[in-house]
């Protein structure tokens, strides 16, 4: 039950993009086309789960015993950058088809703040390993959900008549605001 609550909370109530404001750059950047949004979503779920697990273990068994948790930021970002690189190399070798689909999005994921954000949130909330993994998967799913919804909306927006100054980023942000307002309807469902 607890795990189901974590999932509902991460996907709907505290959606990582629309209420926690993490990962806005890829949210605005790759949501022009549904297909690229799909590729990015897959990459984020995969890397987020992997990096949260690894950083959790490093924090638990290296940083805390050595009493250097203040090095978290530096170590975490290095681990994430290295992991992304490793995933890229392995994917290229093992599954060229998947690499074709996700390849271009992988380097972008290093600077995606959702990954580092989730790794840090796990530490802040003192989660156990099992909870951390569920939390990571759920947040990845939440990111994908928001991204895909938004990509769907933006594809339609291409056809509409928008004032000159509002074209591009501004209208996207305003649309995201309306989407976020819709998600506020879920507030209070889970504490």
């Amino acid at each position: 039950m607890e795990y189901i609550l974590i999932i509902i909370s991460a996907v709907f109530v505290n959606n990582i993009v629309l209420t926690r404001f993490l990962g806005i750059c890829p949210f605005l950047g790759v949501s022009n086309k549904f297909s690229s949004a799909l590729g990015m979503s897959g990459g984020v779920i995969f890397v987020m789960t992997l990096s949260t697990t690894v950083t959790f273990l490093i924090n638990q068994y290296v940083l805390v015993p050595l009493k250097v948790p203040f090095l978290q930021t530096i170590i975490y970002i290095l681990v994430i950058a290295a992991l992304v690189q490793i995933v890229e190399i392995i994917l290229k070798k093992v599954s060229p088809a998947l690499y074709q689909a996700l390849g271009v999005y992988l380097p972008l994921i290093t600077t995606n703040c959702t990954i580092l954000g989730v790794a840090l949130l796990v530490v802040q909330n003192n989660m156990t390993l099992a909870k951390a993994i569920v939390f990571a998967v759920a947040n990845g799913a939440g990111f994908s959900f928001a991204l895909l919804l938004f990509a769907g909306v933006r594809e339609r927006m291409e056809l509409s008549d928008i004032p000159e100054a509002l074209k591009g980023v501004p209208i996207s942000l305003i649309t995201a605001g309306l989407l976020s307002m819709a998600f506020m309807g879920f507030a209070g469902v889970v504490k």
Binding site: L18, T19, F21, L166, V169, P170, I171, S172, L173, I174, A176, G177, L178, S180, M181, F183, M184
Partner: peptide, 11 residues
Amino acid sequence: LAPGAFICLGF
């Protein structure tokens, strides 16, 4: 809250 941030930055 969240929606205001998006809309404000957009304008």
